Amino acid sequence: MDQFEKLYDEHENVKVRFTGFTTENARYDFGVVYSSLFFGKPLVVCMQTGRSTLLEPKDLDDVEHLQHVFRISDEGQANELVEFFSEILPSVPFTTQYE
């Protein structure tokens, strides 16, 4: 480990939400990790594929990003995720984390 410069090594008790739901066309299972790290953006993990991303409400304006991250080809399905995430993602002001 001498060859690596440690950037951070934090321990934190976090709130985790596991939620599953269906739409007319798909089933979704997500884990949402609410943390004070990463500028307060929750870590969203698709439990079916293991794909994950950090999300905040303004990220939901970019539907193509959600399609890419979660590999969703249908824009309608991505818009359903936008609706879901807009209800569960907290509004977090930008904070300086790495000072």
Rank of each mutant, 00 (worst) to 15 (best):
H68V: 07
R17G: 03
G31W: 00
F21C: 09
Y34C: 10
L60M: 05
D2G: 11
P57D: 12
K58C: 12
G76T: 08
A26N: 12
F38V: 07
G31V: 02
V69N: 02
K41E: 11
I88T: 07
H68D: 06
Y28C: 07
F21S: 08
F4W: 09
D29W: 02
M47P: 00
T22W: 01
E5M: 03
R51A: 14
D29I: 03
T96D: 14
V16K: 14
A78E: 06
Y34N: 07
L43R: 05
F4S: 08
Q67A: 06
T19M: 10
L81N: 02
V16Y: 03
E83I: 13
L66I: 01
D9H: 05
T96Q: 15
Q97A: 14
F21D: 04
L37K: 12
H11N: 13
K6S: 03
Q48H: 15
E5W: 03
G76L: 10
R51I: 04
Y34S: 09
E87F: 02
Q48E: 14
E56Y: 07
L60Q: 04
T49V: 09
P93Y: 13
R51N: 12
N25K: 13
L89K: 12
V33F: 09
Y98Q: 09
M1R: 08
V14N: 12
D62E: 06
F38H: 11
D9N: 06
R27T: 08
Q48M: 12
S35L: 15
E83P: 04
Q48I: 09
V69L: 04
R71H: 07
K41S: 14
P93L: 13
M47F: 00
R17A: 14
D59S: 14
R17K: 15
T95R: 13
D59W: 07
V16E: 14
Y8H: 07
F39W: 05
L81G: 03
Y98N: 11
T49E: 08
F30Y: 11
L37D: 05
H68C: 05
I88V: 15
Q3V: 12
V63S: 04
E5N: 07
R17P: 01
E64L: 06
E75D: 02
E75A: 08
G40C: 12
Q77G: 00
L89Q: 11
I88D: 01
P57S: 11
L7S: 00
E83S: 15
I88L: 12
K6F: 04
E80Y: 00
F85E: 03
D2H: 08
H11S: 13
L54G: 00
R71S: 11
R51G: 03
D61F: 06
E56K: 15
S86D: 12
G31R: 13
Y98L: 14
S91F: 13
E87I: 00
S73H: 06
E83Q: 14
E87Y: 02
K15I: 13
D9Q: 02
E64S: 10
T23Q: 02
P93E: 14
R17M: 15
P57W: 10
D2S: 13
D59N: 15
N79F: 08
L43V: 04
H68T: 10
Q67E: 10
V33S: 01
A78Y: 05
V16Q: 12
K15D: 10
M47C: 09
